[in-house]
């Protein structure tokens, strides 16, 4: 009969209406500033820059390659490369960001910057209370505010941080192996050169012994 569904629906909503006063389990919402629910591990809000060691500015992993700046869909990242170079975690000479700004009002938390970064240097943070009273300066986050330690990353995203650390360890091992190989090769080359020189030496006219 026409209207049966409406009556059923009205009964259902009436049950909800009255039930919400009777049983507290029905109320699924959280009274936010007082109550908070723990975030899931994959939660993400806004990127941060990872640094190693104690000094945030010295330990930044970022090498100012600008891949994230180019990939960012809403173009909220602004990077200026440094003029000089410094030693990175692998022991190589690298540039570092003189300026690294992210516009909080433009960022859409897509995580593409994190995915494209080859240096494990930009990651997503879980902090979500990012409002500010200054809508111009307060929403432009610079590298000093963005820099957060690797310990922080390990704390908020343990699984991802472990993977990231492992990847870095592999990189470091590779770099070290390469360095070692280089040294060996150099040594070998030097030895060969020496041997060659030694082979050639008898043919050459004998220098004055005193010299």
């Amino acid at each position: 009969m026409l209207g049966k569904g409406i009556i059923k629906g009205m009964a259902e909503t009436a049950r909800n209406f009255l039930g919400s006063y009777v049983s507290a389990e029905r109320l699924t919402t959280v009274q936010y500033p007082e109550q908070r629910i723990p975030q899931i591990e994959k939660a993400r809000q806004f990127p941060f820059l990872v640094f190693d060691g104690d000094d945030p500015m010295k330990g930044l992993r970022c090498v100012a390659c600008q891949i994230c700046e180019k990939e960012c869909p809403p173009k909220c990242i602004y990077i200026v490369k440094s003029k000089d170079k410094r030693v990175d975690y692998k022991g190589q000479m690298q540039l570092y960001p003189a300026t690294f700004d992210i516009d909080l009002s433009v960022c859409m938390s897509c995580q593409i910057c994190v995915e494209v970064c080859p240096f494990e240097s930009i990651k997503m943070d879980t902090a979500y209370e990012l409002s500010t009273t200054d809508r111009f300066g307060g929403l432009m986050v610079n590298k000093h505010q963005l820099a957060k330690s690797n310990e922080h990353y390990r704390h908020i995203h343990p699984t991802d941080a472990a993977a990231s650390d492992a990847a870095l360890a592999v990189e470091v091992a590779k770099a070290q192996a390469k360095a070692k190989a280089d040294i060996e090769a150099k040594a070998k080359a030097a030895a060969e050169a020496k041997a060659k020189a030694a082979v050639i030496t008898p043919v050459a006219p004998k220098p004055v012994a005193a010299t």
Partner: peptide, 10 residues
């Protein structure tokens, strides 16, 4: 408030 209660909110 009524709509909230119908949707099990405060």
């Amino acid at each position: 408030k009524g709509l909230g209660r119908i949707q099990n909110r405060y």
